[in-house]
Design a protein around this nucleic acid. Structure first.
Length: 405
RNA sequence: GCGUCGGUGGCAGAGUGGUCAAUUGCACUUGGCUGUAAACCAAGCGCCCUUGCGGCUACGGGGGUUCGAAUCCCUCCCGGCGCA
């Protein structure tokens, strides 16, 4: 029996949305669900003791970052979950994203979504010069793997699919991801295709390395990552290719064009085995979560609730607000209307505004907690709506008052 | 009272004849953040104006020198320090 198992409970009638339960050796996740990002074995700013109240069902940590900081103590502690004091389900990302963020993304303010301006001039060459040079990068890709220059001390490190899996075995999460290459949103078709094919070869090697370890294979599941960037035909090809491998679930990675992400995800998910869980890596805003769910995604992870929280962004029913802004100085209402989170039960916008203005560390902490609850709670409501057969109505009701800037 | 040093934009503090509406930091205002190089980054921050190598007013007050002054001179006011 596989260490992670997924059971579908209900499918929505007019979309690919679905509700289910994902079983792991450390408990279950009711899906659709938001997985909190705990890159360096900490959900930045939020004590594990608050997880239950914040409805945090699971976390995802990062192989590259924990490897750099030294995974020995984590192994000695009995795995990343035990190390951080979290008894629930855990995942580890393979380090594939760092191929992008420390590679072609280094020094640039590239998000995973193709910028609006670039879409407009799609026909024009997309930063081809920059992508072609390795100057200024901390990660260089070759067929065998990736050479990293540590962003911490400049030391040289080497990741291959086998090495990533080996470290992920040491970290001991319930679900680990195949080593992949996350490409830039600006990558041209030819490079995207090349990277995707390489990612498929790495997926096979990751899978083989995992199955080879009989002990770990029994207690950790491995999910493969679909790539292909914003190109639909590549995505279809990638999904079929991955579907043909014996993964326990699937991650959908890489970058997208904001405007056809629903279409691409729909396509991808129709190619993937229906009975297996799909995780959309690194996405997204509340409106993106609806898009993902509607396209058949079961789990998500994203740094936004914590990163935005740390930097003063608060999610509310009416959209995202900047709590340090002057207009909230005397706003004694809750952060979000009707929010039942432990922060809103006690604190006001004015207080959070004050904490940020005075740079008190509690500000980022409380904001992160609230945002985390907001995301988890949103996913829970989405799940309930699917079970009740009212997903589309709920989506419409939520988005009608949630303003996207 | 004498001597001396100093008074610059919200604050601190550069500048010491032109390229100064004035470096920089803080504060302030506003953006951004999507598998976390991020408790971060960016922009703005005298007034007017749609624009500009744009106009106007500014470096304690007043007056002068000069083609030109935050920068030099005189004087007044204010502050620190020293001596009486």
């Amino acid at each position: 029996m596989r260490p992670t198992r997924f059971f579908l409970e209900k499918k929505a009638p007019h979309s690919l949305a679905r509700a289910g339960v994902l079983h792991t050796p450390h408990g279950t996740i009711a899906t659709p669900a938001f997985i909190a990002v705990a890159t360096k074995a900490t959900l930045k700013g939020v004590p594990v003791s608050y997880f239950p109240e914040l409805k945090v069902q699971g976390i995802i940590a990062n192989t590259y970052h924990l490897y750099l900081s030294g995974e020995k103590a984590i192994v000695a502690a009995g795995g990343v979950g035990k190390f951080m004091g979290f008894s629930g389900p855990t995942m580890t990302d393979s380090g594939g994203f760092q191929v992008f963020s420390l590679g072609v993304g280094f020094g640039k303010k590239l998000s995973k979504f193709l910028p609006r301006e670039v879409i407009a001039q799609e026909a024009v060459a997309l930063f081809d010069e920059e992508l072609a040079t390795s100057h200024g990068k901390l990660a260089i890709v070759d067929e065998e793997g990736v050479s990293f220059t540590s962003h911490l001390d400049g030391s040289l490190h080497r990741f291959t699919p086998e090495r990533s899996i080996e470290i992920q075995h040491a970290l001991g999460a319930d679900i680990l991801f195949a080593f992949d290459e996350c490409t830039a949103p600006t990558a041209k078709y030819a490079y995207q295709e090349e990277a995707m094919e390489r990612t498929h070869r790495w997926a096979r090697r990751s899978l083989a390395a995992h199955r080879r370890n009989i002990e770990k294979e029994r207690i950790q599941g491995i999910w493969g990552i679909v790539q292909g960037g914003r190109f639909e035909d590549l995505r279809i090809h990638s999904a079929r290719e991955l579907a043909g491998m014996d993964f326990d679930g699937y991650g959908i990675g890489g970058s997208f064009s904001k405007y056809d992400i629903l279409g691409i995800l729909n396509t991808v998910n129709q190619e993937l085995p229906q009975e297996k869980p799909r995780h959309l890596l690194g996405i997204g805003e509340p409106e993106d979560l609806f898009i993902g769910v509607a396209a058949g995604i079961d789990t998500f992870d994203c740094v936004l609730p914590t990163r935005n929280g740390r930097t003063g962004g608060i999610y509310t029913e009416g959209g995202k607000i900047q709590i340090p802004n002057a207009q909230y100085r005397n706003d004694f209402g809750p952060l979000a209307l009707g929010c039942a989170c432990p922060v809103c039960r006690i604190h006001t916008r004015a207080y959070l505004n004050h904490l940020f203005a005075t740079r008190e560390m509690l500000g980022p902490v409380l904001a992160s907690m609230h945002n985390l609850y907001f995301f988890s709670q949103l996913m829970e409501r989405i799940r309930v709506s699917i079970l009740e057969g009212t997903f589309e109505a709920f989506q419409e009701a939520f988005l009608s008052q949630y303003k996207v800037r």
